[in-house]
Design a protein around this nucleic acid. Structure first.
Length: 490
RNA sequence: GGGCCAUUAGCUCAGUUGGUUAGAGCAUCCGCCUUUUAAGCGGAGUGUCGAAGGUUCGAGUCCUUCAUGGCCCA
């Protein structure tokens, strides 16, 4: 390391400062505790309470303005920022001169009186200062923050230090999860945890991640849904269960897809899809009210209102209105392919009939559903786990909630007829045999559970990440996942 | 998987039709400054221009491939 480099390389400069602190018997990394008596936000918001009182604050130095024998240091703690004022005549030369060896990014503890400066800035007058940790790296630019999108995700800690909006996103995420748990507790649901590692990853259609258990010599899959284990618990007599859990789908990455994401699934015995509609509407209305004091919000410039009731749109009817085609007339893969071609919907070569129909609905029906809307009564052939409509067995008691043109939730009256369930699984196996690798193998263990008897049940799945996107006006799912999946740097 | 775009100092970004020694602000280093807050004033140093090839008298700039990311499509 040349002398020039050592002199100007920020890391080397900071290591030299650390060495000097240690030579002065101030080792930042030997400090183990610091008694914090106040948070920045509390002092600022309750200034009258704190004015003239002694406090101890601690945090990271995020700005330093030196004025000869005085200085202002802004400290970032978990709640926000607070200014501190250091004066040589208050601290004494030894403590004041610590500033020579402090940098942006270092952690300090400051004890002293709260006051307001001439410019009315609420400030802690530093009477004793403690170096709590040294940072060897520069912080992101104080003016622009951290703008490089890739780095924001790779080094999320810097993003959180530099960009207060990002903190807010994850505060809302945390508050949302807490609210959901409280809401479900109020409705007598219990929270459970079911296996991530499964021998058959079922409950929906998606390619799973595969792994391997060495001791058992067993191929295992990461779960793609929570559904089938939660229903086993309904069989068990736990009448209201839910799980908020990570699921994994081995698919592409986009602004709306991360390979691992968080789902809420809940199951309630003795109710049906209409019960799930009521629950969904109440949850979203109460959640938005709780977070924002209103059910209205704006997503990407689009006003949305979560006040119930949400409109109901019949899937088959709406498809017919849009295309003039009856679902029941699209009987084969070739029919579906022809319809897709006519509508200009591109589909993968290997797609089977239900995949194509799903895609068509996605292209012609879903984008219009901007305000919260229930799309309901899906055909049974694309709903293998839903109960049939008693008046029309080709249809099911199912709905999906769409907001801003995107699926947010999916729910149905759970199919509890084990023989019908077996028939539908068997039918799915034909598509699987024909090469649809999103269809899981037949799950005998689940059918065995169903054969012991499951009460009528309503079930709901809700994508937490997409919900947080809406609540925080985030355009990309990566903005609401602290550490989204990224390719490692070479 | 395909198309488009980006990648230049620690950070955020300029960099003209290819032309001298690649710039600015912040940060860093030195000096001054005891109520500032994008503090200020004076001075200093920044660099494998994402990587590897190629074209050219000459490449940050043009071409090819690759890497990473973003957006759109699949």
């Amino acid at each position: 390391m040349g002398e020039q480099e050592e002199r100007f390389d920020p890391r080397e400069v900071r290591i030299a400062k650390l060495r000097r602190l240690r030579e002065a018997d101030i080792d930042p990394f030997l400090t183990t505790r610091f008694e914090v008596t106040a948070l920045s936000r509390d002092i600022v918001e309750d200034f009258e309470q704190y004015d003239g009182r002694e406090v101890s604050v601690a945090g990271r130095i995020v700005a330093m303005r030196r004025h000869g024998r005085a200085a202002f240091l802004d400290i970032l703690d978990t709640a926000g920022r607070i200014q501190t004022h250091w004066r040589e005549d208050v601290l004494g030369p030894a403590a004041f001169n610590l500033l020579d060896n402090l940098d942006l990014g270092d952690f300090v503890g400051i004890q002293g009186e709260v006051f307001k400066t001439r410019r009315q800035e609420i400030t802690v007058k530093a009477q004793t200062v403690t170096v709590l940790a040294k940072s060897l790296r520069d912080l992101p630019d104080k003016r622009h923050g951290l703008a490089n999108v890739d780095l924001r995700y790779r080094q999320r800690y810097l993003d959180l230090i530099a960009n207060p909006d990002v903190r807010q996103v994850f505060m809302i995420r945390a508050q949302t999860l807490a609210f959901i748990r409280q809401f479900l507790l109020g409705r007598s649901f219990i929270e459970v945890e079911t296996p991530v590692l499964q021998t058959i990853a079922g409950g929906t259609e998606a390619r799973p991640f595969q792994t391997y258990h060495n001791a058992l010599g067993l191929p295992l899959y990461l779960r793609i849904a929570l559904e089938l284990h939660l229903k086993r618990l309904i069989v068990a007599g736990l009448d209201r269960v839910y799980e908020i859990g990570r699921v994994f789908r081995n698919e592409g990455i986009s602004t709306r897809h991360n390979p691992e994401f968080t789902m809420l699934e809940l199951y309630q015995a003795y109710t049906d899809y209409r019960g799930m509609m009521e629950l969904t509407e109440s949850l979203l209305a109460e959640l938005t009210q709780h977070l924002f004091g209103t059910t209205e919000l704006v997503y990407q410039g689009q006003p949305l209102d979560f006040a119930p009731p949400y409109p109901r749109v019949d899937l088959v009817e709406r498809l017919c209105e849009k295309t003039g085609v009856l679902w029941s007339d699209v009987k084969t893969q070739d029919d579906a392919r022809a319809l897709a071609r006519r509508l200009g919907v591109t589909v993968e070569r290997a797609s089977d009939r239900s995949q194509i129909m799903d895609k068509i609905v996605g292209a012609v029906v879903e984008p219009d559903l901007v305000q919260p809307t229930f799309l309901w009564h899906h055909p049974a052939d694309i709903s293998p786990l839903a109960k049939r409509d008693p008046n029309n067995p080709m249809l099911t008691e199912r709905f999906e909630l769409f907001v801003a043109g995107r699926e947010l939730a999916n729910a149905f009256s759970e199919l509890n007829d084990p023989l019908d369930q077996r028939d539908r699984f068997v039918e799915q196996q034909q598509a699987r045999a024909a090469g649809n690798d999103e269809i899981p193998p037949l799950d005998e263990d689940f059918l065995l559970a169903l054969e012991h008897g499951m009460p009528p049940t309503g079930g709901l799945g809700l994508g937490i990440d997409r919900l947080i996107m809406l609540l925080t006006d985030s355009p990309s799912i990566r903005d609401v996942i602290l550490f989204p999946t990224l390719r490692p740097l070479a």
